[in-house]
Structure formats: C-alpha cells, structure tokens
Design a protein around this nucleic acid. Structure first.
Length: 405
DNA sequence: GTTAGTTCAGTTGAAAGCAATATTATCGGCTAC
DNA sequence: AGCCGATAATATTGCTTTCAACTGAACTAACGA
C-alpha cells in the first residue's frame, strides 16, 4: 500500500491568487475603450477620414513619449477605418521598424509589406527597385487604399536615411487605382526637423501629438483594468494610486504603470497575501528598476562591463567613509585599474580615447554620473561616480564578477 | 593684488583601419521548352 | 533560354585606433601701486 505522492507543483496550482485575468495587464492587450485619448483619436480619425470618401488622405505623423498610447490608438483607429470602409477597400499594414531582422532596412521593410500582400520575396538578392515594382503590381490591381503604419519610424530613418520615405510618397504618382497613406509613429519629438525638406513638405501634412498621461488619468486607466484583471477587492486603492504616481513621474508612461501593478500583484501572490498593498508597489518599483539596470548592463559589450567592474571595485577600495566625495574616481585612476583588470582577464586594453567614450556611454545610460573638472595645473579630467548603490550595486557586482575576475 | 602666460591630464572631433556581416554579382548546373 | 542555389566579390557596419586641436583652472612670473 503506497501513499500517493502529492505533485511538486500542486501547491502552486491551488495557491490562491489575486489575479482574475492577468493578461489584461499586458502591454499588448487592447482594451475595448481607450481612456483619456479622445482628443487624439478624434484628430487621427479626422486626418484619415478623407480616405473613406475616396480621396487619398494626407500622411500623418504621430508624436509622443513611450507609453502614451500612440500604437494602440493608431491600430484602433485603423481597424475602425477598415470596418467602416465599404467600397474603396482599405488595407492596413502595421510594421514596427525597430524590430531587428524584420524591418530595419528599406529592403526588409518592403519584404515585410509584400508578404502582407501574400507575395513571396527572397530574403536577399533582389534590387530594391524590383521590389517597388512588385509592390505596385500587387497593389494596383484594384481600387484600394493602403494605410501603412510605420511604428518607431525614427529608428529606421536614423539607420538608413530618409530616402525610402520619398520613394513611398513617389509611389502614389505611379499607382493608377490604389493609394498609399503613411502613418508614421515616433517618440522623437524632433524627428520632423531632421527630415529632408522635400520629404517634409510631402509627408508631414498632419500631425498628432500624444501628451503624457497625468497621474489622475493613469489612475483611471489602472482602475479600469484592475477591476477586471484582479479579483474584486484584491487591490487596495492606495496601491493603484502609488502605481499611477510613480508612472506619472516617468513621463506619464502607461506601460510602466501597468507593469508596476502587475509585478505588485505577483509579489503579493508569492507572499501568499490576499490583497495588493502600497508596500507591494514599492517593492515592485525596486524590482523593475533593478531588472532594468541589470538588463542594460547585460546588453553592454564586454569592454564596457569591464570598465564598470573596475569602477565598482576601485570605488569599494576607497577608505570606508560615507562621504560622497570619497566615492569619486578620476579618469586616470580608473583607466589604470581598468588596464590591470584587462590584463588579468586577457582582454585587449582599449586606448584612453575609446575608454573616454565608453565612460560617456555609461553616463548616458545613467549607470555612472560624470562631470568634467579642471584641477588647474594638474590637468582636466572627468570625475566619475557610480549611480547605482546598495542592494542593486551588489547584484550588478555579482553579475559582473561572474564574467570577470 | 593684478594680469598674462604656462601647464597638465585628459576630452573631443575627424579620419582612417579592420574585421565581421550584409548585399550584389557571377557562374555552373538543372529544368522546361 | 530561364531559373536556382552556391560562391565569389563588394559594400556596409560597428568598433577601435591615430592624430591633433582644445580645455580651463592652478600655478608662475612679471607688473605696477
């Protein structure tokens, strides 16, 4: 007679959870109603409306920081457009230009579009003008309007220049029956200024600006999502307020707000608690911050990591005072300890020139803070301070120590 | 005490080298006429 | 002849180095009161 072993996972399966439907908190979830974007949606609709009357509509540019609902709203409006269109057929092609290997060159962009139309295109080999002809052939056989949503278009323009935009605009003169409307989405507010004059005049006819959400708007959004995503009463209002407030500080990023709330819920679950409280939100914020920093550091090339590790170890080697001034490193000293660290790891030692640039990069990433100081007769150099500290610093150090010595 | 000039220790910008990838061009083999 | 895939040739990138101009306050020395 043998006792039935309880499955290892059974305790997790039956563990109570605060979530009713966690997927509603995912950034990919498209809510039935998009709150607090009525104005923007209105502008967008007005800009695209001429399509339904058969006129080729103006091209539209959408600006706004990340997490302000640009993508969701444009997809929403585009889908409405498709359902509303009867006679002049409207087709929407959504392409995220930032995805590596998918649409980060003109060729790949075209390939991607052609595939949407069921054309088979080789990954490489054809000249781009052939692709343009294929596109014209595929599209022009009937009366239709193509709405081309180019998300993160700034990334593509930065990479391959703005020529391709001109090509697309020019296509309209070549097409007999079909029309193309470009809907460019970017979070670079200065994007338009950097475009070629020619393109600017033919492209930027309509602009919609997405402002960051305010804390109270974020709160509304969270309230609405939370009511369905969580079990009733499982989230304390204070927790939601905190999430909204924190995300509002970060340029009103709704994605951030939802992430905070989701992670807070996960933490509550793990602790076996029945409600999500403000404390959970605080922990969630730290978690997300830590993850973000660790992720960016992981993504850095080995040389940059080495420099950072050198900075951490030499900052620790300083006499144990709490004064900030004593944690400062100077370029020369750091370069020296970087050199020894490289030798110990059999890494190539970069020149001071490159070293200087990499320090600058760590600065822009917000991992160290630097400023240039002049010590008069004793030269001019950068003063470097670590921006991470405490628990996070330990984690970073541990990670780097695994890869280096 | 002021002023003009030096000096140091890197910082910064431009240009060029180099290796890894990505694109193009070319070529031989294969199939269908 | 036309198409295909493989391979060679060429271009593009991303990362670095080299070279050289630049920086700005501490330090020095000369100046004038």
């Amino acid at each position: 007679m043998r006792l039935v072993e309880p499955n290892l996972f059974s305790k997790y399966i039956h563990q109570p959870t605060v979530f009713a439907n966690k997927s509603l908190l995912s950034p990919h979830h498209v809510p039935a109603k998009i709150a607090h974007r009525e104005v923007e949606i209105g502008q967008l609709t007005a800009a695209l409306a001429p399509i339904l009357r058969g006129y080729g509509s103006a091209n539209v540019f959408i600006y706004g920081n990340c997490g302000t609902g640009k993508t969701i709203c444009s997809r929403f409006v585009a889908s409405q457009l498709v359902t509303a269109s009867k006679k002049p057929v409207v087709r929407v092609v959504y392409i995220n230009c930032k995805l590596k290997k998918v649409a980060d060159t003109e060729y790949r962009l075209l390939t991607q579009i052609l595939r949407e139309f069921g054309e088979t295109v080789p990954d490489t080999g054809l000249p781009t003008d052939v692709l343009y002809r294929r596109f014209v052939a595929a599209v022009d056989e009937r009366q239709q309007t193509i709405v081309l949503i180019l998300d993160e278009i700034d990334a593509l323009v930065r990479k391959v220049g703005d020529e391709f935009l001109y090509n697309f605009v020019r296509l309209n003169t070549e097409l007999q029956k079909a029309r193309i409307t470009i809907l460019g989405i970017t979070n670079d507010l200065a994007f338009r200024d950097n475009l070629d004059q020619r393109i600017k005049s033919s492209l930027g006819e309509e602009e919609v600006l997405f402002k960051p959400y305010t804390a109270s708007q974020l709160k509304d959004i969270l309230d609405e999502r939370a009511s369905e995503a969580f079990n009733t009463g499982a989230v304390e209002p204070a927790a939601i307020n905190k999430c909204a407030a924190l995300a509002a500080q970060e340029h009103g990023d709704a994605r951030r707000a939802l992430d905070l709330l989701r992670v807070a819920g996960e933490i509550a679950d793990r602790n076996g608690e029945e409600t999500v409280s403000e404390q959970h939100t605080d922990v969630a914020e730290r978690r997300l911050d830590t993850d973000r920093v660790i992720e960016t550091i992981k993504a850095q090339p080995k040389q940059t990591q080495t420099i950072l590790f050198a900075a951490i170890t030499s900052a620790e080697a300083r006499p144990a005072t709490d004064r900030w001034a004593d944690k400062r490193l100077l370029t020369g000293d750091l370069y020296a300890s970087y050199c020894t660290l490289c030798q110990r790891n059999n890494l190539k030692v970069l020149t001071p020139r490159r070293f200087s640039d990499l320090i600058g990069e760590l600065d822009t990433l917000g991992i160290v803070a630097t400023r240039i100081i002049s010590k008069g007769r004793y030269g001019r150099m950068r003063e470097i301070m670590l921006s991470v500290n405490g628990e996070l610093l330990e984690k970073v150090k541990d990670y780097l120590a695994l890869r280096l010595n």
